[in-house]
Amino acid sequence: MTGPREWWKTALGVLFTALMLFPVYWMVNVSLTKTSDMRADPPHWFPWNPTLDGYSAVFSQQLPNLATSLLIALGTVALTLVISAPAAYALSQLHLRGAGTLNFILLVAQMIPGVIMAMGFYSMYIKLGWLNSIWGLVIADSTVAVPFGVLLLTTFMAGIQRELLQAATIDGAGSWRTFRSIVLPISRNSLLTVSLFAFLWAWSDFIFASTLNRNGDLIPITLGIYKYIGNNTTEWNSIMATATVASIPAAVLLVIAQRYVAAGVTAGAVKD
């Protein structure tokens, strides 16, 4: 099929995409609007007369929060990988007893509402004195990613050729060396997918941040935006500028790793 029909489809596709992404455009547009134009009627559809006030507010007020979020997200990635990669190896290649039960528990774990985990963590942390700590948030955020990580990595590692691992055993490699020098390098793409999702979830987390880190000195960017909305409802350009900056990791990851993103979403639900 060639010719005009194809072009119609592309045009329609562009239209749908534009409609879908309109809120994203609107966020950027508002972030560049002057405070005095904010309540203009009708609103300005294009930032003809842009201002960077919103962004300078981000740099003067939100940089520490961005750094905190980065730290939390990286910590979550590390913790998720350290827990889930060895476990996936045990589940997929070492015939762990009770593997079926463990898989089942992991599936059920993903269904538990975040607000419930938040309450449980709150009552634990208040005793341990872990409230308002980065470490506490890293642990809480990782509970979203660990079950996903184990299940995804197990699926991948189960597909590694047994001959390869047996050859290593014959060469005298113990299971730790096999894991480190064969299984991990082969699983690179899956590890990347897991890291990517762990990062994004931790970066985007609102529930845990707003419950376990309400009075901290170091707050993540999501909470920064939330407090912003509460404090000043007039400077929406600053709020939207912060939101735009907070979206950058998602955008970057999508551009450089769209393949992995799609793989992760699908691996979650459908087994090929």
Partner: peptide, 12 residues
Amino acid sequence: HLGGAAAATPTA
């Protein structure tokens, strides 16, 4: 927060 639920119960 779709973690999704991977389906595999590996049977080796």
